[in-house]
């Protein structure tokens, strides 16, 4: 009969209308600024730079290798490498970013920078309320604003952070073992009164500076 299909549809809407008063299945919206849905663990919004120490600028893991700058598809990262070097978490002398800017208006939250970074130093934040009234400077996020602690990372992405911590711990252990071996070799060589060849073993780590003693602060080069 003509009209039954419409009536059937009406019943459906009536069910939904009535249901929206008591059935959470039918009323799925929340009043956003007051009520919030917890973000998903994997959620990604905008990158941040991980630091390990109290002073964010001292403890940045980033070594300004500029790989992310090169790989970022829309090219929204801008890095200036420092002139001097400083010891990183495992005591190796490394450059650090004198400038590290990400253009918020260009970044597309793709996470490629995170994937290509070999030093676990850039990660994705879950903060999504990033709007800004300043159209120019306010959207260029500098390294001071980007720096966030490893605790923060552990809080927002527990699983991922655990994996990342494990990688770093392994690297540190390796570096320490190597430093120890190097020191011993050096001592042995010094004892044998050899020339100033320097005990540079084949280093698997990236090439900067000969690995000096593990905790030394003096630049080697």
């Amino acid at each position: 009969m003509l009209g039954t299909g419409i009536l059937k549809g009406m019943v459906e809407t009536a069910k939904n209308f009535a249901g929206s008063y008591h059935d959470p299945e039918r009323l799925t919206t929340v009043e956003y600024p007051e009520q919030r849905i917890a973000s998903k663990e994997n959620a990604r919004q905008f990158p941040f730079l991980v630091h390990d120490t109290e002073d964010p600028m001292k403890g940045l893991r980033c070594v300004a290798c500029q790989i992310c700058e090169k790989e970022c598809p829309p090219q929204c990262i801008y890095i200036v490498k420092s002139k001097d070097k400083r010891a990183d978490y495992k005591g190796q002398m490394q450059f650090y970013p004198a400038t590290f800017d990400i253009d918020l208006s260009v970044c597309m939250s793709c996470q490629i920078c995170v994937e290509v970074c070999p030093f676990e130093s850039i990660k994705m934040d879950t903060e999504f309320e990033l709007s800004n009234t300043d159209r120019f400077g306010g959207l260029l996020v500098n390294k001071h604003q980007l720096a966030k602690s490893n605790e923060h990372y552990r809080k927002i992405h527990p699983t991922e952070a655990a994996a990342s911590d494990a990688v770093l711990a392994a690297e540190t252990a390796k570096a320490q073992a190597k430093a120890k071996a190097d020191a011993e070799a050096k001592a042995a060589k010094a004892a044998a009164a050899a020339g100033p060849v320097g005990a540079v073993a084949s280093a698997p780590a990236p090439k900067p500076s000969s690995p000096a003693a593990a905790t030394a602060a003096a630049p080697a080069a």
Partner: peptide, 14 residues
Amino acid sequence: DEFDALLSGNEILM
């Protein structure tokens, strides 16, 4: 099923 009941047999849609 709900969508079908709501729409697929609806005369106006047809």
